[in-house]
Design a protein around this nucleic acid. Structure first.
Lengths: 110, 110
DNA sequence: ACATCGTATGTCGCATCGGACATAGCGTCA
DNA sequence: TGACGCTATGTCCGATGCGACATACGATGT
């Protein structure tokens, strides 16, 4: 991910819906951004569902609470690798990850 | 991704099927590895289907041919971010990416 | 034989990511 | 009020991923 893009992202409020186009992002960049948002949201849901604190998840991830917070906050300085690994460790299945990536709005809610 | 794990991966032959367990990987690590393999395979298929050379894809990705080669080779020093962006730029849809992640074997073949 | 094209592999310098730590805000409960 | 748990934010330093370049190798065509 590009630094310039991160800057542009960090700026706007974010989180809301699928807001992505009025910044000039290529379709691919936009897709990537949407995926990230879907994944972070998913992470928070899965973690909560498992009744874990960020601290607890951090422990299992062998990371730190602050990292987990940043992951869930959609901090630009977080790679998909870390994000996805966090999801898995939090208890998400591979297909749950896939569902988030696909952008399908939750039916089962995990 | 951990350096130690990469070392362990780079060692064995790889590529073949789902070989992952005799190295002691946690289930989450194994899932992640499978995802990576599925994604790299997918990338090669999508790129070829679009009749692009690695050089051409690199150009669109604003990267280099050697990087693309490493991505497709499953080089451990490649993040999911780069991998997935490459897939998108190569023309894969978001749901194709999701399918690869889910580990479903191709039906439509894109 | 030679040129060309697609791909693979190694290396280097620089940018960025990640874990750790400190600190602060916010609820809740006693 | 104070203590405690959960989360958010900022900073540091060391690790590593990335683009670029060089180079090699095979296949194909002439």
């Amino acid at each position: 991910m590009n630094a310039a893009m991160r800057r542009r992202l960090g700026a706007a409020g974010w989180r809301v819906g699928t807001v992505a186009e009025f910044l000039h992002l290529t379709p691919e960049e936009e897709a990537l951004v949407d995926m990230r948002i879907a994944l972070t949201d998913s992470l928070r849901r899965v973690r909560r569902k498992g009744r874990m604190s960020q601290t607890e998840l951090a422990r299992r991830l062998k990371s730190s609470q602050s990292r987990v917070a940043k992951i869930e906050a959609g901090d630009p300085g977080v790679t998909l690798d870390l994000l996805i690994q966090a999801l898995l460790v939090a208890g998400a299945s591979r297909s749950q990850v896939a569902r988030a990536i696909a952008g399908k709005r939750r039916r089962d809610a995990a």
